[in-house]
Computed example of a mutant assay.
Amino acid sequence: MKTKEKILNAALQLYNEQGIRSVTTRHIAASIGLSGGNLHYHFKHTEDIIRALFNELASAYDDLMLNAQQASINLATIDALAAISFQLVNKYRFIFINFVEIANWIPEIKASYGQLIQKREQQFVSFFDALAQHGIFRDDIPTSNKLGLVKQFFIISDFWLSHNELTRQYRGEDALNDYKKTINLLLWPYIKRFE
């Protein structure tokens, strides 16, 4: 594994365990036996590390959306996509727990997030259209409602973890099941009912 990857893996683990304000670049370097100078050769500032981790997360969601467009169109696919989304939320949990603070602290992340939303709106609307063409989604849903549904998806995936931490504090399978149930309840009004 390359040094840069080791730094990012160590940072991810430490941020997830201790939070972004408790972990310094010295902590990250020490956790993998690097000198501070060696770490700063790869990442000049803490913001650079967080930006790189955010970019990893965005790339993983890009892959998820690409797979969604290529997968079989059925309810099992939606369930599988929700499970993968949950894994990403859990893997990069520090970003989701601290997202507003991170976005205000690092303006490039805030700008990138705005661009991601526009891209995801198109991807999700195309996916919803495919679900309607396959008889899974109702075909009478206006585009404005589809865009509203995308917004709701973002609210859930971006802030479910914070809500969970403040309320139920589910872990493991319980957390996964609650996340998927929340997604399924969001989709329920749009699913075509078969008599």
Rank of each mutant, 00 (worst) to 15 (best):
M1Y: 06
K2E: 11
K4Q: 11
I7M: 06
L8N: 06
N9Y: 08
A11D: 08
A11V: 09
L12C: 14
L14C: 11
N16P: 13
N16I: 14
E17W: 09
S22L: 14
S22T: 12
T25K: 13
R26G: 11
A29E: 06
A29Y: 04
A29F: 05
A29L: 08
A30Q: 14
A30K: 13
S31H: 07
S31A: 11
I32P: 00
L34A: 01
L39I: 09
F43M: 06
K44L: 06
T46F: 11
T46V: 03
T46D: 05
D48R: 02
I49P: 01
I49G: 00
I49R: 03
I50D: 01
A52R: 03
A58D: 15
S59W: 08
A60R: 12
D63W: 06
D63Y: 11
Q69F: 01
I78G: 00
A80T: 10
L81H: 08
L81P: 00
A82S: 12
A83K: 13
F86Q: 07
N90A: 11
K91H: 14
K91M: 02
Y92A: 04
R93F: 06
F94C: 11
F94P: 02
N98V: 03
F99Q: 10
A103E: 15
P107R: 03
I109K: 02
K110N: 07
K110V: 00
A111L: 12
S112I: 00
Y113M: 07
Q115M: 09
I117G: 00
Q118H: 08
E121D: 13
V125G: 02
S126P: 03
F128A: 02
D129W: 03
G135D: 05
D139S: 14
T143V: 15
K146F: 05
K146M: 12
L147I: 12
L147A: 08
L147S: 05
G148C: 10
G148A: 13
V150I: 09
V150N: 03
K151E: 10
Q152G: 14
I156E: 01
S157C: 07
F159Y: 13
W160P: 03
W160A: 08
L161C: 07
S162V: 15
N164T: 10
E165S: 12
E165I: 09
L166Q: 15
L166E: 14
T167P: 02
T167K: 10
R168K: 13
R168A: 12
Y170C: 06
D174F: 02
A175C: 10
A175Q: 07
L176I: 01
K180D: 00
K181P: 00
I183H: 00
N184F: 05
N184S: 09
L185V: 00
L185T: 00
L186Q: 02
L186T: 01
P189E: 09
I191N: 04
R193A: 06
E195D: 08
E195Q: 07
